[in-house]
């Protein structure tokens, strides 16, 4: 699956989580190649844990990475990453792509909590995250973008996030920033000089009857009920550390699962 072509590297990682029938979750599929590497880590209770290991740096220009995660009925999976992913300029021309496809069946639960994505100067990355959830699936996703390493201008980063519950989109958003992005991305309507931006999506069936109350945490973060059984935290901050604190504070403000 790791095919090196003139246009860059294509790489695919796949995870399937299955209820093992003994109160735990097994991982019948855990495949990865080249730059993407998956490691199973110690499970907690019924939840399997997987770490996405950055065997190489993140996608370079022309690279196309794909990660597919599927949680079958009743299984529980938590996926994190060992370190931040850095999008770098590559020798090959053109944008790099990073596609994440997640699918959670009824009574399944997925926590998708990677570390930050850092957009280094000169890089050009298009990230798509598409999530399909069954009506009773439970889901948490964190997405954090850091524009440039310390003291550095960002690269170009475009990220589209789509979350569907029972086939119905509850969230569909695209944020484009960096040089070459449509104008105004760093202006007062969009980021206003903030160098870290993040979202936390939380989907729970019980939110359909009892949506979270809309709240704000200062001027830099909001917690809102989406049009569906889901809540969204949106946050901007000067840096990655303060962004993480805001997201964690917002997550802690949600009703306990």
């Amino acid at each position: 699956m790791n095919v090196r072509t003139g246009a860059g590297v294509r790489s695919l990682a796949r995870i399937v989580a299955r209820d093992d029938g003994r109160g735990g979750t097994s991982l019948p599929v855990l495949e990865s190649d080249g730059p993407l590497a998956l490691r199973r880590t110690r499970a907690t209770g019924s939840e399997a844990r997987v770490m996405l290991v950055g065997a190489m740096s993140g996608p370079l220009g022309g690279d196309h990475f794909t990660v597919e995660g599927r949680v079958e009925e009743g299984a529980r999976l938590s996926v994190g990453s060992a370190a931040a992913t850095i999008a770098l300029p590559g020798q090959a021309k053109g944008e790099a792509r990073y596609d994440v496809r997640l699918d959670v069946a009824d009574h399944g639960e997925l926590h998708w909590l990677p570390e930050q994505l850092i957009s280094a100067q000169g890089s050009d990355l298009y990230v798509t995250t598409r999530v399909e959830l069954a009506p009773t699936a439970r889901f948490v996703l964190r997405e954090e973008q850091v524009l440039g390493r310390v003291g550095e201008e960002p690269g170009r980063l475009t990220s589209r996030l789509t979350v569907r519950v029972a086939g119905q989109a509850v969230l569909d958003q695209e944020l484009a920033c960096g040089p070459g992005a449509p104008g105004g991305w760093d202006g007062p309507a969009v980021l206003a000089g903030h160098r870290a931006v993040g979202q936390l999506v939380v989907v729970r069936p019980e939110f359909a009857a009892e949506p979270v109350a809309a709240t704000v945490l200062g001027e830099g973060a909001s917690v809102v009920p989406l049009a569906g059984p889901a809540a969204l935290v949106t946050a901007v901050a000067p840096d990655a550390l303060r962004l993480r604190r805001l997201l964690e504070e917002a997550f802690a403000s949600l009703p306990r699962a």
Binding site: T162, A169, Q173, E174, A189, V190, E219, S222, V224, A235
Partner: peptide
């Protein structure tokens, strides 16, 4: 409809909630 643009602006979203309060 998935083919339609979905451009978002974090500060417009957050600011709208700040304003509503």
């Amino acid at each position: 409809v998935d083919a339609l643009p979905a451009g978002s602006a974090p500060l417009l979203e957050i600011g709208a909630e700040v304003h509503a309060a």
